[in-house]
Amino acid sequence: MQDELALLARARALDPDALAQVHDTYFAPIFRYVAFRVGDRHTAEDLASEVFTRFLSALRDRTAPQNTLRGWLYGVAARVVSDHYRKHYRAPQVELDESIVSSESNPADIVETMLTHEDLKQAMSELTDEQQNVISLRFGYELPIQEVARTLGKTEGAIKQLQARAIATLARKLVPSQTVDL
């Protein structure tokens, strides 16, 4: 935390080493988070870069975060993603059923071996915005429950519940219907 504060102070002074360090530390987590939300590698690359460009604008306009760089960058990433969705209307997915693998295999194996990013993208689209955020932060940004709760301003219990419901929905979509009996 102390390190992050010092790093942030140097970044505000546009210190090149500090900025390089910010990018090196946060590019991958931001990319993973965005990738979870948009489900497309190419789009995720562009959007992750956009997050850092906005960070520079914030430094120039002196609206950059005062303490938690990590939480602030997540907030920017969330806005970048929702701006992206506003700009690009997503065509409804029609081939959902065909993309689901056959029912004979062991569900666990299916999930572990056969699922593609495209499957995930389609399943994720079934989640509420809040659920998508929790899953993306947990598994993309790799924040522990406690940090997700702090970032989204909710209790840990609420995050666990959101996560449980999200995973139940994803399982229903990703694993053949007859094996998932809710």
Partner: peptide
């Protein structure tokens, strides 16, 4: 519960890396 836990366990592996 099994497919749900399988999904949860698979999510980290579905993560994209830049």
């Amino acid at each position: 519960l099994r497919p749900m836990l399988a999904t949860a366990g698979a999510l980290p592996t579905l993560r994209m890396e830049p």
